[in-house]
Design a protein around this nucleic acid. Structure first.
Lengths: 187, 187
DNA sequence: CTGATTATTTGATTTTTCTCAACAAGTTAA
DNA sequence: TTAACTTGTTGAGAAAAATCAAATAATCAG
C-alpha cells in the first residue's frame, strides 16, 4: 500500500529489502467506530500503524474510562507495556471512527529483527520518538494548570479536540469533565 | 570493571565480543556531591551507567529547581531528549554524593551499533524498560493523591527518600515542600 | 564555637479543582 | 413523536493542595 511506503520513507537508512520484508508482514484491518484494535486482559500482539481514521487507548479504573493516548493517521500505536513484556494488557485501543490499521504481529516483527537489523533500528528510532513524547508529556504536565494543558493540546494536536468527546479529552488531560467544560466556555 | 560486566550480564543474548567492545569504550569518571554529569544548554553526549553513588536529573524553571528523576547504582541515566535529538539539553544531571559513572559517548555507541547489532538490541531493550517505567509513572500519577505518590515512592524506591532532600522529593512528586513535610509528619 | 545561611516544619489563608446536583440539548429506540 | 439515554453545561459547596508567613532545626564558613 502506498501509505505504508510513505511512512517507511521517513526512515532514510532503510533499504528496499527491509522495507518490502516489513510491508509483506503487514495485515490491513478495518474497524468501525468503537471496535477494539487491542483488548485489555490479553497480551497485545500487534504494532499498529493507523493508515486511516484514529484510535484511542484507554483503560477502565473503578468503572471510569481513562484515556491514555490518541493516535491519528500515520502514527503507530500499541499497548507498549504488554507488547514489550508479553503480559496481559491493562489498556484497550479502540477505533474512534472508521479506521484502517496496518498491523504487524510481535512474532513477525521479532523475526524480522533477526534478518534485518535495519528494521530493528527503525523500531528503535520509533521507540525513541515515543519516549521523548512521553517524557515531554510527563514533564510539562507538571507545570501546567488545567487551562494550560487544554490550550497546549489545542495547539499541538487540534484534530483530537474535534474527534474526541469532552469526557475522553478530560480524562486524557487529567481533569474533570466539568472543569474542561468551563475552560471551553471561557475561550 | 567487574560491575560493568555484572550489568551487561543481565542481557543474556549479548555475546562476549559485543560486551568487551562496549566495555572498551566506557570511561570511568568520578564526581563529588553537586558535580554535574551533564549540563543544561549543551547537547548531552553520554549515556551514563551509575556504578557507585547516585544522581539526580533536574532543570530550572522560573528559578525553581525541578527534579525529573533519580538514578541509583547500576541504573543508566542520560538526558534522553538531548541524547536522542542531539539538541541542547534542558536538563542537568548532578551527583547526589560521591559518584562513579561508567560513561560512553553518543558517537562511540552509534559506531558500535554498526558493528554489533546485539548492542543496538541491548540499547533497544534498555529503552523499552525506560519507556515502560515512564508510562507507568505517567499513568499512575494521574490517580494518586500527594500522599499516595509519596507512599508509592517509599515502597518502590525507598533509598531515594534517604538520599534526597525534601525539596528535591517534593518537586519530583509534584507537590509543594510544605505538603510533603506535612505528609511525612503524619506517617 | 558562633553567627549566618539554608532547610524543614507548622499554622493560617487562598486558590484550584473536584464532586454532587440540576438542567439543557442531542440521539436513539420503540 | 415520545421516552430513555447520552452528552455537555452550569451552579454551589467541599476537598486537596498551594501560597504566604513565621518559627525551628540543621549546616556551613570563618
Amino acid at each position: 500500500m502506498q501509505k505504508i511506503a510513505e511512512v517507511l520513507n521517513q526512515f532514510p537508512h532503510l533499504d528496499e529489502k527491509s522495507k518490502s520484508a516489513f510491508a509483506e508482514k503487514i495485515t490491513l484491518e478495518e474497524y468501525e467506530r468503537g471496535d477494539l484494535l487491542e483488548c485489555a486482559g490479553k497480551p497485545c500482539n500487534h504494532l499498529h500503524l493507523i493508515l486511516q481514521g484514529s484510535a484511542r487507548s484507554f483503560y477502565l479504573k473503578d468503572n471510569k474510562d481513562i484515556t491514555v493516548s490518541f493516535t491519528l493517521e500515520n502514527e503507530f500505536t500499541t499497548t507498549m507495556h504488554s507488547f514489550i513484556t508479553r503480559k496481559p494488557s491493562y489498556e484497550n485501543i479502540e477505533a474512534m471512527e472508521k479506521t484502517i490499521s496496518g498491523k504487524i504481529s510481535h512474532e513477525d516483527l521479532w523475526n524480522l529483527f533477526e534478518l534485518y537489523p535495519n528494521l530493528e533500528r527503525t523500531y528503535r528510532l520509533i521507540l525513541e520518538q515515543y519516549y521523548i513524547t512521553l517524557e515531554e508529556q510527563l514533564i510539562f504536565s507538571k507545570f501546567k494548570s488545567a487551562k494550560e494543558r487544554y490550550l497546549e493540546l489545542m495547539e499541538t494536536r487540534p484534530k483530537i479536540i474535534h474527534k474526541a468527546s469532552v469526557g475522553q479529552i478530560a480524562s486524557y488531560l487529567d481533569m474533570s469533565i466539568e472543569t474542561l467544560s468551563r475552560i471551553r466556555g471561557k475561550i
